[in-house]
Structures are given as structure tokens and as C-alpha cells.
Simulated scan of single mutants.
Amino acid sequence: MAFNEEPVSPLQEQNKVTAMNMAEIISGIQNPDPLVQFQSTQAARKLLSRERQPPIDDILKAGVVPQLVAFLACVDR
């Protein structure tokens, strides 16, 4: 039996993140658009959650950690 990969609810559709490369993630985190920031942060979280060799050093070197920490204080997301 094959499972359908399509979202089954509007919430799943909203949270669906397309694959982004590191440059797109970093650019998106620094983007002034809150939706782009949110999607990029989700992509970074998923990328860092990989079991094998997550690109932690790349995220640190990009200097976006302070911005990611600042996002934690946002109450509108």
C-alpha cells in the first residue's frame, strides 16, 4: 500500500517547506518578510535535524544564530 505524500489538512499545507539550499536559508532568515523568515527557519531546523553530519558549522559561520534566537521572542508566529 502506497501512502499519499500530499498534505491532508490546511495546517499541513501551511507547514510544508520546500527544500532549500544553505544560501537560500541564510538569505531567507535575513529577509524582512516574516513568512520568508519562518519558512527559512523551518528549513534550517530540518537541515540541522539530520542524523548524519548536520551543517552546524555552516550555520554558525553564516552568523544567523543571533537572528534565530531573536525569533524565539516573536509572539506573532
Rank of each mutant, 00 (worst) to 15 (best):
T18A: 12
L48C: 10
D58G: 03
L47H: 08
S27D: 15
P34V: 04
F38C: 07
A19D: 12
P66E: 08
S49V: 00
A23V: 04
A70V: 02
P55Y: 04
A23E: 15
Q37E: 10
F3N: 08
A2W: 06
Q37G: 04
V65D: 11
G63Y: 10
D33E: 14
R50F: 00
P7G: 08
M22G: 03
T41E: 14
C74W: 00
E5A: 02
P7I: 02
D58K: 14
L60D: 12
Q37L: 08
R50L: 04
V36P: 12
Q30K: 15
Q30G: 10
D58L: 09
F71D: 14
V69D: 11
L11G: 02
I26P: 13
S9W: 05
G28Y: 11
Q12C: 00
G63A: 05
P55R: 06
Q12I: 00
A62Q: 07
I29H: 10
E13F: 06
P32K: 07
P66H: 11
V64T: 02
S27G: 15
P7H: 04
L35K: 14
V64W: 12
V17S: 11
E24Y: 05
M1R: 08
Q42L: 15
V65I: 12
L47K: 13
S40H: 10
C74I: 00
Q14S: 03
L35G: 04
C74E: 12
L35P: 03
A73W: 01
V8Q: 15
A73P: 00
R50M: 06
L48Q: 09
A73H: 07
N4A: 01
E5S: 01
N31S: 14
A70F: 01
P32T: 04
N4L: 03
Q12F: 01
K61S: 13
A43R: 07
A23N: 14
Q39Y: 14
A70K: 14
V36C: 12
L11M: 10
A43S: 14
N15K: 04
I56N: 10
N15Q: 09
Q14F: 13
F71R: 07
L48P: 06
P7T: 02
F38I: 03
Q37I: 07
L72V: 01
L60Y: 12
S40F: 07
N31K: 03
N21R: 06
I26E: 14
A73T: 02
A62M: 06
R45C: 07
V65N: 05
T41Y: 15
A43T: 04
I25A: 13
Q12E: 15
D58Q: 15
L11N: 06
F3T: 02
F71H: 14
S9Q: 02
P10E: 11
Q37W: 07
D57N: 13
M1F: 08
L11F: 09
P55I: 01
S40P: 09
P10W: 10
L72H: 05
A43V: 03
D57H: 05
D76T: 00
M1H: 07
P34D: 13
A43N: 09
P7L: 06
F38W: 15
V69N: 10
L72A: 09
N31Y: 05
L47N: 09
Q14C: 00
S9Y: 03
S40V: 04
E24T: 02
S40G: 13
A73E: 13
P10Y: 09
L47R: 13
G63W: 09
